[in-house]
């Protein structure tokens, strides 16, 4: 059975990515691995899902009826490394991420998780845009 790795953040974009990933999983008959991690290096990290978000996510995934697992943890690695490493570890067929518009200055200051994943992914990457 093939595997699809999804980078999830608790917002509309993250949900769009998951929805798209569910479609792909059905099409490819694959298992979904949803990843949400934090480095826990700051007081507030809105990209990290709390338990409410996780149960909401579980609701969506079980309703979709695809096999899935959720990796929700604190990790030393950055979110991009975590997604890429997991994809490599599971020999995933596809990575699904959300892609949002970034200003050049924003990218300079904060870097871009999406860009890092795109450049170092071991497989194809599906970048989902929020319509």
């Amino acid at each position: 059975m093939s595997t699809i790795v999804v980078g999830y953040v608790p917002n509309a974009l993250g949900e769009a990515a998951v929805a798209e990933a569910v479609e792909e999983a059905r099409r490819r008959d694959a298992e979904l691995v949803v990843i949400n991690t934090t480095r826990a290096d700051r007081l507030v990290n809105p990209a990290y899902a709390d338990s409410e978000d996780v149960s909401k996510l579980e609701g969506i995934l079980s309703a979709a009826g695809v096999p899935y697992s959720i990796r929700h943890s604190i990790s030393e690695a950055t979110a991009a490394e975590e997604v890429v490493d997991t994809a490599a570890e599971l020999a995933a067929d596809l990575i699904v991420i959300g892609l949002r518009h970034r200003t050049p200055v924003g990218k300079l200051i904060m870097g871009s998780t999406a860009q890092t994943i795109l450049l170092s992914a071991p497989c194809n990457v599906l970048a989902v845009k929020l319509s």
Binding site: P10, T38, V44, Y48
Partner: peptide, 9 residues
């Protein structure tokens, strides 16, 4: 240094 879980606003 705290490495605990992070509470979302």
């Amino acid at each position: 240094l705290r490495h605990g879980p992070i509470k979302v606003i």
